[in-house]
Amino acid sequence: MKNKGIVIFLIILTIVIVTVVTLDYYSSKPDELPENPYALNLTSFEKVDNSQIIYTEIRDFTINFSEPAGICCTKDQIYVVGDQKMQIIDSYGKLIHEFKFDQKPTCVYTSAQNIFIGFRKSVSVLTGDGVKIMDWNSFSDSTVITSITEKSGIIFIADAGKRIIRKYNPEGLSLGVIEGKSENEQIHGFIIPSPYFDIAFNADGEFWVVNPGKHALENYTINGDLRTWWKATSVRIEGFSGCCNPAHFAFLPDGSFVTSEKGRVRIKIYKPSGEFLGVVAAPSKFEQNSHPPDLATDNSGNIYALDLDKKMIRQFVKKEK
């Protein structure tokens, strides 16, 4: 009789232990949480059909920068700025020259004669050998220089802080500004919610400006008159979404636009007419919600993306059919 009581007690104890262990196993643990009804799933907007990807990554090389900022390239050299320096490297990643600065550059542009280094509130003009010729410092306190380009001896400087494009002659004399205003009601002027404001000339000498708040690319004369524009607003792969896209762009030799975006980080190509052509790099290739890669292209149609998070230059070429 005494043994029977002990057996019953042990059976009850076993049942209690098993119940507690089972309940604990199925309880809400950080790695075993039930589906959350409030989760916002954006993965469907990151997926890209393989048939839309028309470029392939053939090479990447790590660069010795902790905070790379901008890239441009010439026929056989790549110029990268960031930290407090500029590096000139060949197309295989070999360092050719390095130049130090006393502040952090934001962008770089090379013309036939000079190298223009953009800082937050100033521009340094260097010779092709890296010797400083002059500094342009007469900007506003709220100036944020994000891009530089040049045509016919006029240097264009994109000022995201003031939302204007400044024009200078090679001696640093101001030639006025472009505000992007137009009588056309659909054009508003430059809307720059964050410091991404890119400008470039295509091979035909046409001056194009990103209006990121409008998801538009706008073509101006050198005098600042709007000639034409196109826009593509959509969270789908065909368009630009969010506050400030495209963040960067560059031109291919045929006049096609190469664009990179923030938020859903991706690189795409649009025809000269603005029609979506295809994808260079899908969001899966980048860390999401991070920095948009700066872009450069060469005469052969290679695309160089400066990946600011992975600290590397990634080279893309067109897929062979």
Binding site: Y38, G242, C243, C244, R264, Q288
Partner: peptide
């Protein structure tokens, strides 16, 4: 507001956060 963070994710993914 119930703190579901849907808007936060949308803002972080597409905007300035």
């Amino acid at each position: 507001c119930i703190g579901c963070a849907k808007c936060v994710k949308g803002c972080t993914s597409f905007g300035n956060g």
